[in-house]
């Protein structure tokens, strides 16, 4: 069955705090909650605990939600049906 853009609705309905992120820099796979978090910057900055590279940025300022995953090679989340 083809994957469509509509399937993204399901992705962002999931609880990403349980996600495992694979760092685009060093390749380490780590649970999101085990990363180094810098919440006091203008936005949340999440760094790889192995190499300190930025893997995720998340911000809600200015009436917009911003998510940057360019430092993440792979985001893995357990599907609801598998839980």
């Amino acid at each position: 069955m083809a994957t469509t853009l509509d399937d993204l609705r399901g992705l962002f309905a999931l609880d990403l705090t349980d996600a495992v992120l694979t760092c685009g820099g060093c390749g380490a796979s780590t649970e999101l909650r085990a990363h180094d978090l810098y919440p006091d910057a203008p936005a949340l900055v999440v760094r790889c605990p192995s190499c300190t590279a930025v893997v995720l940025r998340f911000g809600t300022g200015g009436g917009r939600v911003r998510l940057d995953l360019s430092g993440t090679r792979l985001l893995t989340v357990t599907a609801p049906s598998a839980g």
Partner: peptide, 8 residues
């Protein structure tokens, strides 16, 4: 003088 930092 708040300290805002995006990394170590």
């Amino acid at each position: 003088f708040p300290v805002l930092t995006a990394g170590p």
